[in-house]
Amino acid sequence: MIIVFALFLLTLLVITALAIVQTTNLFVAVMLTSIFSLLMASNFFILDAADVALTEAAVGAGITTVIFLAALMLTTEHEKPHLSRRKLNTVVITILASLIIYATFDKPRLGDPDAPVHQHLAPWYLEKTPEYMDFPNVVTAILGSFRGYDTLGEVFVVFAACIGVLFILGVKPPEGSTYNPYRSGLKHHLIPQVVGRLLIPFLVLFGLYVQFHGEYSPGGGFQAGALIASAIILYALLEGEAAALRAVPRSVLLGLVIGGATLYGGVGVVCILMGGNFLEYTVLLDNPVAAQQTGIILIEAGVGMAVCGALLSIFHAFAARPMRV
């Protein structure tokens, strides 16, 4: 049954992708992209990737869409319908597609427990996580500790994007720009007001749950950061961007980003100072299991802070920019 459902979802995925290419209204394209992400998230869930599904839904379908819409507001909604005339494109793409499909014939069968992917590293992680960390979510264990250095890098990718957007949009807007008419939010629309206000506290609460329960169930810093950021973005949409900035000012957001990134890096440096390698949490406390848990909780907090602050800074950088007339 679930397989039929998966086939159905995948087919929808392809149809949505084609529809996105076809449409010349960018607003429609962005909304379809959001649907595409949700379908993708459902697919991930069917394939047992709960953490990834949660992230794709929060980041792909939520935050990405909002940033796209904010950018469309500052640019234009319509795409000129013609294509570039280079014939080469189709040739390149056909060759690549057949190459990939050719490669799939030797790929291991889906779900084959004897596939090489499931032989080497994965069993080790599944076996050692209960021993070294003593908590159930293996994804969090790899993310926070076994491959914690990747995650640190990822936090700095987000940080780079955040300062990048602030830098690029930090120049003065062109002469004669005006603020957009929706800057005051949807204050005068009753239904979004009521529904939205009901949602915000739950979103924040869910975000905090995901943050602090990441060792036990799907979730962690990224998902939490994205969820809390989306709660505040929702607030900004309802009450106006200025009100959201009053509630959480820009300096606080930048502080969150810097604080989060520094907290994560700081934990690593403390590990060096206490005689371990970078990010070797085991040296933090006498009990190695408790030390691993402490380290992971601390860095997850850093991740959550940095992601939440960065996404909100990016949102405000777009939303607060006056439009070119």
Binding site: A49, V52, V117, V138, V157, A161
Partner: peptide
């Protein structure tokens, strides 16, 4: 679990 961790990272890289 490992591909999931990698893709978590990649998703965030993508949005950035």
């Amino acid at each position: 679990p490992l591909p999931q961790v990698l893709i978590l990272t990649a998703i965030v890289v993508g949005v950035s």
